[in-house]
Simulated scan of single mutants.
Amino acid sequence: MATMTLFHSPLSPFVRKVMVVLHETGQLDRVQLQAVNVSPVAGDEQLNQGNPIGKIPALRLEDGGVLHDSRVICEYLDTQHVGIPLIPREGSARWRRLTLASQADAIMDAAVSLRYETFLRPAEKRWDGWVEAQSQKIRRSLTNLEREHLAELVSGFDIVAIGVACALGYLDLRQPHFGWREQQPGLAAWYAEVALRPSMVATAPVA
Rank of each mutant, 00 (worst) to 15 (best):
I56W: 04
Q34D: 03
F178H: 04
P10L: 04
F157C: 08
L150F: 03
E182I: 01
T79R: 14
P52F: 00
P198V: 06
R94T: 06
D128F: 02
V41Y: 12
T203S: 07
G169I: 13
P40V: 04
Y116W: 15
L77G: 07
V112G: 07
S155F: 04
G83D: 04
T203V: 01
E193W: 10
L168G: 07
M19Q: 15
G43D: 03
S12D: 10
L77M: 10
R126E: 02
T79S: 12
E148R: 15
G186F: 00
V20P: 10
E152R: 11
S155D: 13
S102I: 02
C166K: 03
I159C: 03
G179F: 01
F7C: 00
H23T: 05
V131C: 11
T5C: 02
P205H: 14
V194T: 01
A123Q: 14
D44G: 10
E182Q: 12
P122A: 03
L61Y: 02
P185M: 03
C166S: 06
A111K: 06
D105A: 08
R94P: 06
G179H: 02
P13G: 03
L59S: 05
G43W: 06
P57Q: 11
G54L: 10
P40K: 03
Q136N: 14
F157K: 04
K55Y: 04
Q49R: 15
S102G: 14
E182G: 03
H23G: 02
E117R: 07
I84V: 14
R89P: 00
I159Y: 11
S39P: 11
S70L: 07
Q175T: 00
R89G: 07
T79W: 01
A93L: 13
N37M: 09
V206N: 09
P185C: 08
T143V: 09
A202L: 08
A93T: 11
F178N: 05
M200V: 05
G163L: 08
R126F: 11
T203R: 03
W95Q: 12
T25G: 02
M4W: 12
K125A: 11
L150A: 07
G91Q: 12
G26M: 09
I84D: 15
V112R: 07
P52T: 00
C166N: 07
R140F: 13
S70Q: 12
